[in-house]
Every structure is written in C-alpha cells, then in structure tokens.
Simulated scan of single mutants.
Amino acid sequence: MNDNKYGITTHNTGNVDPRATAQMHANLQSRVYGASWHWQVDDKEAIQSFEDDVSCWHASDGKGPGNMRTIAFEGCINRGGNYKKAMDNMAKLSAIYCYLKNWDPLLMIKQHYDYAPNKKNCPAQIRAGKEGITWGIYLSMIVNHINTLRGTSRYNPKGLETFEVKGYTSPKLPFKELKVGDMVTIENGGKWYDPQKEVEMKPSIDVTGKQAKIKQVKDIKDVSHSKVAYLLEDFNSWILEEHIKEAKSDWVKVEDTEINKDDRVEAEIDKNVDKEFYEVKDGQFYLDGVLYEIKKA
C-alpha cells in the first residue's frame, strides 16, 4: 500500500485474442496471477481492479517507483475491438486523473519502457504508432481531453446540456429539511444543479424514480423554488430540493385526497407567461405539473 502516487504507467496488454477485453483482464486479476495493474481499458469500458493506493506488480522494476508509486493502465488490443477508441478511452481516463490531481501529463504519464531495467517494449502498439497513434499523439490526446474538462464547470465535468434556472418563487408549502445520510427519490423531470454557474443540467440517463443517499447539504442562492441543494452519493451530482420526493413528504397531492374529480378545477395557464407555479383555486397549487392541496391543521 502506498498513497504517495506520482503518476501513471501506460501499458498495452499484448493480447490480441478477440476475447481479451477489459472484462477478461479484470477476471484474470480475480485469480492468482503473476502480475497486477489498476485499470484495464477497451473500446467500451474501463474497469478498476485495485484502488489507487495499492502498489501493483506491473513495471518490471521490483520495489522501484514504477511498481510502488504509479497507477497502471492496461490498454486492450484485442482483434475485433476498436483500437483507436480503446486508446482514446485510456487517454480520457488519464485526463480525468490529471484533471482531478492537477498533474502535468507530460511529466506524470510514463511508459512501462521508462521503468523497466530491460527496457521492455511496452506499450508496444503505441510505441510502434499503430493506426497513427504514436506516443506523442497519445499525450496530445490526453492534453485535449484535459482542456475539455477545464472548459466545463467543476460541477459539470461531463459537459452536460445546461438550462437556465428561473428566478426564485417561494413554494406555497415549505420543503421538509433533509440531512446527510437520508435516502431520497428523484422525481420526474429532475435535473442536476451546478451551484457555480447557477444552471441545471440534463442527466445523461433517466433518473426518474432513482434513489440515492444524501452525501452533502448546501445552502444556495435562492433559485426556482429552492434554497437548498443536495449532493447525491450514488450520482456525485447536486440536485435542487424541489426535485426530491421526500422534501415534499408533508405535501398532499390532490389525487391522493378524497376530493371528487368532478369538483376539481382545471388549471388555466397563460401561454404567454412562463410559469411553472400557479394557483388554480383556494387551497390548491401546481408545482412542476403536479396539483397539491394545502390541508388545514
């Protein structure tokens, strides 16, 4: 174990078998094997076998700095796979590490060749410039991905589509205060929130109905109907309180009451006014397309 890591060692697997994907190499490490590495990357995914603070046996230098203090990436070269995409995925993963750790890729990313006393020809395919990706071009790919990351907000590193958040309108009922450790449910239409740029972002997957644990609570500048945002542990993303089902657990939906359907008042929406939040009759109000009723104590 050594958490004093100072870079990445880049490898190619050397295995051209069509089955030699990232998953196959991860499976290999689940058994007793004479070598070990942290990440394996192919054209579809990257799989981590060991945490970063584990010293793996990959750089041919015994207890030298390669094995003891660098994170090993194995890039797959399996026949039938998309080699260029696999190398781009490995470059993206390298860029994420450099971005998060503030590493200079030209100093912190090395080849297996650099540590091996016998100057092992690895990563062989990159060193040979396979499909036009030389070592210099590979490093430039990493730099380009780092620049992409730096061009986004730290709360939106994936560059998700953003939406302007409307000015604050106080809800007719207060939201319930939630705390770190609470399990919550994301409501339909829920978006991630960027407290730095004060915009919302469309999730890359449908998160409606998904549950997650609150990791952090943040008081934010009042926006939309919210004054609080929650960091969800399983998504590592912030979300406004108005998109959390449990924040409205004290609210009563009209369809959940005993009010006769015939007695309900249809909402009248002014198409020329951009409003999500409007009253329909005394004691009822809409929020995010849901009709609620204020119950008297």
Rank of each mutant, 00 (worst) to 15 (best):
Asn2Leu: 04
Asn2Lys: 10
Tyr6Gly: 05
Ile8Arg: 07
Thr10Trp: 07
Thr10Pro: 01
Thr10Gln: 13
Thr10Gly: 08
Arg19Glu: 14
Gln23Thr: 07
Ala26Val: 02
Ala26Cys: 12
Ala26Tyr: 12
Leu28Cys: 07
Gln29Ala: 14
Arg31Pro: 09
Ser36Gly: 09
Trp39Val: 15
Asp42Thr: 11
Asp43Pro: 03
Lys44Leu: 07
Gln48Val: 07
His58Asp: 09
His58Arg: 03
Ser60Arg: 02
Ser60Tyr: 10
Gly62Glu: 15
Lys63Thr: 10
Lys63Ile: 14
Gly66Gln: 02
Arg69Asn: 04
Thr70Arg: 09
Phe73Arg: 10
Gly75Tyr: 14
Asn78Glu: 15
Tyr83Thr: 00
Met87Lys: 02
Asn89Asp: 01
Lys92Met: 07
Ile96His: 03
Tyr99Leu: 06
Lys101Thr: 04
Asn102Val: 07
Pro105Met: 00
Pro105Asn: 06
Leu107Pro: 08
Ile109Asn: 08
His112Trp: 01
Asp114Pro: 05
Tyr115Asp: 01
Ala124His: 03
Arg127Thr: 04
Arg127Leu: 15
Gly129Glu: 12
Gly136Thr: 11
Ile142Cys: 09
His145Lys: 08
Asn147Pro: 00
Leu149Val: 09
Thr152Ser: 14
Arg154Cys: 08
Tyr155Ser: 08
Asn156Val: 07
Lys158Asp: 15
Gly159Glu: 00
Phe163Pro: 08
Glu164Arg: 08
Lys166Tyr: 07
Gly167Val: 12
Leu173Met: 15
Val180Lys: 01
Gly181Gln: 08
Met183Ser: 15
Gly189Val: 01
Gly190Pro: 00
Asp194Gln: 03
Gln196Met: 08
Lys197Tyr: 12
Glu198His: 10
Met201Glu: 08
Lys202Gly: 14
Ile205Phe: 07
Thr208His: 05
Thr208Arg: 01
Lys210Ala: 07
Lys210Thr: 13
Lys210Cys: 04
Ala212Val: 14
Lys213Val: 02
Gln216Val: 04
Val217Ile: 00
Ile220Val: 05
Ile220Lys: 13
Asp222Ser: 11
Ala229Leu: 00
Tyr230Gly: 07
Asn236Ala: 11
His243Val: 10
Ala247Thr: 01
Ser249Tyr: 04
Ser249Gln: 10
Trp251Met: 09
Val254Trp: 02
Val254Arg: 02
Asp256Ser: 05
Asp263Arg: 10
Val273Met: 13
Glu276Asn: 12
Phe277Ser: 08
Tyr278Thr: 03
Lys281Ser: 15
Lys296Cys: 12
Ala297Ser: 03
